[in-house]
Amino acid sequence: MSLAQASVTARVHSATRVIDWRNLPVMIVLGIGAIFMLLPFLWMFATSMRPASEAYQLPPSFLPTRLNFDAYAAVLDSPLPFLRMYLNSFIVAAATTIGVVVSSAMAAFAFSRLRFPGSSLLFGLLLVGLMVPHALVVIPLFYGMAAAGLLDSLWSLILPGLASPLAIFMMRQFMEGQPREYEEAAFIDGASYWTIFWRISLPQMGPPIAALSIIVFTSSWNNFLLPLIFVRKFEVMTLPVGLLGLSDSFGALSLSVIMAAVTMCVLPLLVVFLVAQRFIVESIASTGIKR
């Protein structure tokens, strides 16, 4: 049974059954755990609302006592171009997402709908790519980027992120489960391969594209290693490393300012989660089940 079916049955059950009170202890345990999971975020937000002079005061607060956006203003006024770095993060994450989705969907189309010599060899190569740790490729990449004059540019952050064997795997796996009749009919009617891909295959791939987009976008938004190595100038920096610079430039004195910056960095991820939690959860669940 796939997770989609499982969650459908779960939904049916919860709709028809009243709350099972024998599970109350379980709910309490899970509830306490959930509160502990959220405490760091609550502390982050509450601290960002404190005036700088009270930021370190104990006891720590987990709920803001009043709304005070001074710290947020201080982040925007900082000597580092915070908004610029925010924009950079968006550009890098969006470009990476579009590039990965388009290239992996095209490759998946070739693997699951077309027959050609070398198909299994090329697919096997991806397996090798899946195992490679980032640590192994960053050293040569650094010198390649330097030779191409791409260091200190957003390209140095976008291009390496486009190589994603995992995305091709995911897309192919999904396409294999889709019916081929429409594509075959279109082919008989004389449609070109590109038309078939663009007009028939791609529109069927909505759910996996949504899931893949979220995964690629968040991992690009969160990437720490690439900007740490490839970028020095804050004008082309992205947030994960930029935040480190911001905290160095403010020193330990302005905890509330740093927490305001962290809050702003986390916010898009929270929005993504609230909008698309079902897609994310189902796509991750499926990676463990499909074999």
Binding site: G33, A34, I35, M37, L38, P40, F41, W43, M44, T218, W221, N222, N223, F224, L239, P240, V241, L243, L244, S247, I258, M259, V262, C265, V266, L269, L270, V272, F273, L274, Q277, I280, V281
Partner: peptide
């Protein structure tokens, strides 16, 4: 789900400060 899964989405680079 929100409580247990939110940290997965958020980079260590961000939450490390917390």
């Amino acid at each position: 789900r929100l409580a247990y899964f939110l940290p997965v989405l958020v980079s260590l680079a961000f939450v490390s400060f917390i």
